[in-house]
């Protein structure tokens, strides 16, 4: 599944200062019944976003019109639990292209990159600075520069660099995916399998 290239993203951000946001919250299991990758954004954070009568919960951040943007900023250990890639699809489909946290669960992090979302891991201190900047001004923008591996809080000028391996970075910058790469080395894989 190809996705848009990721180069520089400048956007306001949606703050979610909750720790251990698990993928069951991002997309509850009962919404995993599709056989196509479509429409998952509608059910992103379903049970935090809507009450049992499908009415929006006013105190949930996605229902608060002052917050918007293509960047989701979450608390520590974002994306824990189930391996469902549907969680990453839902975040992408809703319109986010980048998730910032001080710590990501492994499988979620891999899934995110595979669908074209950049997970940016920052220090706990920098994460707090982001939350503070958004609290001061909900329209406060962040700039995420993948080429330079740098995230900046534009209102304060504070910035931090983040890690990503060279191969994945190249993929995201160019909108390539792993399947293209693996297809190109099929004969090498076949001879490896034959030797096993």
């Amino acid at each position: 599944m190809a996705y848009d290239k990721f180069t520089i993203l400048k956007s306001s951000a949606v703050p979610m200062p909750i720790e251990n946001v698990d993928t069951d919250q991002i997309i509850p299991a009962r919404f995993l019944k599709a056989t196509e990758r479509k429409g998952f954004g509608d059910n992103l954070f379903r049970d935090w976003r809507y009450d049992s009568n499908d009415q929006p919960k006013q105190d949930f951040v996605l229902n608060n019109p002052i917050y918007s943007g293509k960047i989701l900023v979450g608390g520590k250990n974002f994306g824990s639990g189930s391996s469902r890639e549907h969680a990453a699809w839902a975040i992408y489909d809703y319109g986010f292209r980048c998730v910032v946290s001080s710590f990501f669960a492994d499988i979620f992090k891999g899934n995110a990159i595979n669908v074209g979302i950049l997970p940016v891991q920052v220090s706990p201190e920098f994460l707090n600075q982001i939350f503070e900047a958004i609290e001061k001004d909900p329209k406060s923008e962040l700039e995420v520069n993948l080429e330079d591996q740098k995230i900046t809080i534009l209102s304060t000028g504070a910035s931090e660099s983040f890690a990503i391996n060279g191969y994945k970075k190249h993929n995201l910058l160019n909108g390539f995916d792993d399947i293209d790469y693996l297809q190109s080395m099929k004969s090498e894989i076949e001879s490896f399998a034959a030797k096993k």
Binding site: R84, G110, N111, N114, L182, K186, I189
Partner: peptide, 16 residues
């Protein structure tokens, strides 16, 4: 693994 990786394993028996 995630679904993208399921597709990788089906098509190439490998993941990254």
């Amino acid at each position: 693994i995630g679904t993208s990786e399921v597709e990788m394993v089906l098509s190439s028996q490998c993941i990254m």
